[in-house]
């Protein structure tokens, strides 16, 4: 019997995401996500169970894992890095994509694509939490807000300049700003602007022009995407489910494996 299902699991530092595709038509059949606990394998199992909920029980499928926890998922047929997966996912959503900007939980990356969608080059900020989802989360928490509320606050008005290059010291800087009476909205603006500037700095080091895709959880916020477009000086395309771009890329690779097996 041919393998009908293909699954991609993106075991990220903050969330574990999974996407289920029809391996032939590549139609999106289901998606699920859960916070990654201390055990990436258990999180992946839980997210798989959630993914299959509408199907009664798990079916035969091929599985590709990506993300920081990718090597801890023994039931995956293969694991590949999130750089390849974000590129595949972005190109699937927008075939004209030439640049992918992903802001993840513990790193951020810029990927330059050749014509046809192959990865040409990439740069990562993985040394420092400033410029990652984790940074936004910690500042939002400082203000007693959820990350979505925090991003929404940044929709207009004055922006505070956040200049610290380190997430921990940026937090200190923000506490100082709050003590001086800065408005949470202005701080939110400042934080998103500082992240967008960092991404622009990375992107400027890579060659190539063309359509830019913004992926990762932060891309769910239209304000974030707008800020990024302003800094980059070009429109930014956001997939329908940006936080699932990596999992989608992994599922596309799983579908390719399934086709190989079926052939």
């Amino acid at each position: 019997m041919p393998l009908r299902f293909a699954i991609g699991i993106d075991a990220g530092s903050a969330q574990t995401k999974a996407v289920l595709l029809d391996s032939i038509s590549l139609a999106l059949l289901a998606k699920a996500s859960l916070p990654t606990g201390w055990n990436p394998k258990a999180s992946a199992e839980a997210v798989l169970a959630k993914l299959w909920q509408g199907f009664g029980e798990a079916q035969a499928c091929s599985i590709v894992a990506t993300g920081y926890g990718r090597v801890a998922i023994p039931f995956a047929d293969k694991n590949i890095t999130e750089i390849s997966c974000h590129a595949k996912g972005a190109v699937h959503c927008f075939p004209t994509a030439r640049l992918v900007i992903d802001i993840g939980g513990q790193d951020s990356k810029v990927i330059s694509l050749a014509e046809g969608g192959a990865v040409r080059d990439f740069l990562m900020n993985d040394k420092c939490a400033a410029g990652t989802g984790r940074f936004v989360e910690s500042v939002a928490r400082l203000l007693g807000l959820h990350i979505a509320e925090f991003c929404a606050l940044a929709s207009g008005g004055e922006a505070c300049a956040i200049t610290s290059m380190c997430a921990v010291f940026a937090e200190t800087e923000i506490i100082g700003l709050l003590a001086q009476g800065a408005k949470p909205g202005a701080i939110a603006q400042g934080v998103l602007a500082s992240i967008a500037r960092r991404m622009q700095g990375l992107a400027a080091r890579l060659p190539g022009t063309g359509d830019c895709v913004f992926s990762g959880g932060l891309a769910q916020s239209p304000v974030c995407a707008e800020r990024l477009a302003q800094e980059l000086g070009c429109p930014v395309l956001v997939p329908e489910y940006p936080q699932f771009t990596g999992a989608l890329g992994a599922a596309l690779e799983a579908a390719r494996l399934a086709k190989e097996k079926n052939a």
Partner: peptide
């Protein structure tokens, strides 16, 4: 682990 991701992504290219 971060280096491993970069290096593996590079080898995937």
């Amino acid at each position: 682990e971060q280096l491993r991701i970069r290096i593996q992504a590079f080898l995937e290219i």
